[in-house]
Design a protein around this nucleic acid. Structure first.
Lengths: 148, 148
DNA sequence: GCAATCTGGACCCAATTGGTCCGGATTGGA
DNA sequence: TCCAATCCGGACCAATTGGGTCCAGATTGC
């Protein structure tokens, strides 16, 4: 399975809740933790990463908290993934750097995942966080339930 | 980064070499290992998985070996990924099964990665192993070299 | 000056993955 | 008939990665 880190999942949740909770002001990490059901240190970590990427803005001090830098509708999913998981690429060998793979000389696919990566980047661009939040609610799969 | 397992990478290499080496006959694992530069047990493992998925066919016995069940041009990349990494989905929560996530009640993105997964599946369908093998050879990135 | 909050980092534990190995089954040839 | 070569299925171990926690410091408002 194409693993995406859990942190990215959390980030989407946190961003969504953050927009809901926002009333022009800031929201603290503990409040977001309570709203999402996640552990506070984890939420804090996610927010720190997102802050570093410029997706949210942290304000220190007594009345501090976090604030979105823009609406989640204007926030492409790719930016969140890139912020947390790093550049979008399927394999480590994909960036054409040298000296990583000891089978370099005989490896016939070195640097050839590019079309795949491009395809994925194209597929992901155009999807915003708001698109995820606005997706239809969960529909239980009857066959899954019945199979057990 | 959207990590894809190394085994998948190996699989593409092995399949490519397998088609090159094929002359109507079968190819043994040790021969493929030598041709790819990979360790023999690893190649064997990859072939076993691919065999289980029906992408290659193993023939036992003295004159045994492996054989492609079809040309790699007819072999979509998605099948290889699915065979080795499992179903193509970005997160573990994505299949709408229950009882996995303890924050289920408050998790606002449960089952909402579906559009993303669909987009990726669409992007990947239509890419065959042959497309990867036929991609232009590695062009060293001058800026990377110059940067060091 | 104090309390509340973000910031940046180090740190540890668990899980997944990469990789190896072995016994058994099967097939072809001597 | 026997033997060697090969695939097959599984168990097994080591290591890297990621999830998660915590703490000291900086900043801000009261």
């Amino acid at each position: 399975m194409l693993r995406l880190s859990k942190l990215t999942d959390y980030a989407v949740v946190v961003l969504t809740r953050l927009e809901e909770a926002e009333e022009g002001g800031v929201t603290t990490a503990p409040v977001l933790a309570a709203a999402t059901g996640l552990a506070e240190p984890t939420v804090s970590k996610v927010l720190k990463i997102l802050s570093h990427a410029g997706l949210v803005e942290g304000r220190r001090g007594a009345a501090g908290g976090y604030r979105l830098t823009r609406a989640i509708a204007e926030m492409p999913l790719t930016e969140v993934i890139t912020a947390i998981d790093g550049p979008i690429a399927l394999t480590a060998c994909v960036d054409n750097t040298f000296g990583l793979c000891d089978a370099e000389a005989t490896c016939p696919v070195r640097g050839r995942w590019d079309p795949v990566n491009d395809a994925i980047r194209r597929a992901l661009s155009g999807i915003s966080i708001a698109d995820l939040a606005a997706a239809p609610a969960i529909v239980p799969h009857p066959e899954v339930v019945a199979a057990e």
